[in-house]
């Protein structure tokens, strides 16, 4: 779409996944995944439940272990070496379906925790950064409250701000809106669109097709642990090639 084309995609490679395979026991969840993401790309991953889309992005920051193939993030190859894993996690932010804010810490503490302890940022500076990003997600006035006192949409926006405080170069979104009421979905999507417009490299697992059309420069459809189809959004939605994709789209867009 028009807006999507405005946003630049560089030639620099942010993530490169080659022949990656993963099993849960003997169950083959991800099969021969090949995916290259350039810096500044905004990728939406969709597919039926159980297709491995969440597992795929969770492999990128090593929340899940892959058994075969390679994943390279920012030039660092993911291995079992814990130092490499921590290095990658510092550069890759993640938002979860259930927000996973720390309920025993205030909103501000949620945002400053990782910068202070991982980046060794002085407390004062970390708080300034946190307030900057809380303003960006439009809830600076909630800084002293606890997560339990906020609505779902607000919590998810705090979760986004919390990740941004680490100044990540890549953001992963694991169904960020599927636990939210319709009214709150809009406020979270707005935040994500804003982020995309600033050129953040994003991988989003989501069923928000409006969002995909608006900001994604590539849509990936997965089924049974494999990438079935990937294309630019326009082409993907108007002219799906595979039968499986056509069926899926007719089901989710049919209502």
């Amino acid at each position: 779409m028009a807006e999507a084309q405005k946003m630049e995609v560089s030639d620099e490679i942010a993530i490169s996944i080659r022949k990656m395979n993963k099993w849960y026991g003997s169950f083959h969840v991800l099969r021969d995944i090949d995916l290259t993401v350039n810096r500044g790309e905004r990728i939406v991953i969709c597919g039926p439940s159980g297709s491995g889309k969440s597992t795929l992005i969770r492999c990128i920051n090593a929340l899940e272990e892959h058994q075969k193939g390679t994943i390279e993030v920012d030039g660092i190859t993911l291995s079992s070496d814990i130092k490499n894993v921590d290095k990658i996690r510092r550069e890759v932010g993640m938002c979860f379906q259930h927000f996973n804010l720390f309920p025993h810490l205030s909103i501000l503490e949620n945002c400053t925790l990782a910068p202070i302890w991982v980046r060794k940022t002085p407390k004062k500076e970390a708080e300034e950064i946190a307030m900057h990003f809380l303003e960006k997600v439009k809830i600076p006035e909630q800084a002293d409250k606890y997560p339990g006192q906020l609505s779902g949409g607000q919590q998810q926006r705090v979760a986004i701000a919390r990740s941004l405080c680490m100044r990540p170069r890549i953001m992963l979104f694991d169904e960020p809106t599927s636990a939210l009421d319709p009214e709150m979905i809009a406020e979270v999507l707005d935040t994500m669109i804003e982020l995309a417009e600033e050129g953040m490299t994003m991988l989003c697992v989501t069923h928000e097709m409006g969002f995909a059309r608006k900001v994604a420069n590539r849509v990936i459809f997965m089924d049974q642990g494999q990438i079935v189809e990937q294309n630019e959004p326009e082409e993907f939605f108007n002219n799906p090639k595979s039968e499986r994709t056509q069926l899926f789209l007719s089901q989710i867009l049919g209502h």
């Binding site: 920051n61 090593a62 929340l63 814990i82 921590d86 996690r89 510092r90 890759v92 932010g93 993640m94 979860f96 259930h98 996973n100 804010l101 720390f102 309920p103 025993h104 925790l113 990782a114 302890w117 991982v118 919390r162 990740s163 680490m166």
Partner: peptide
Amino acid sequence: PKGQYEAADSLGLDYPQAMRLIILPQ
């Protein structure tokens, strides 16, 4: 919830930090 461990991991906290700051207080 498992999400607390994952959130701590995804922010780059190492094991002692995650335990001391996130998991054990709760």
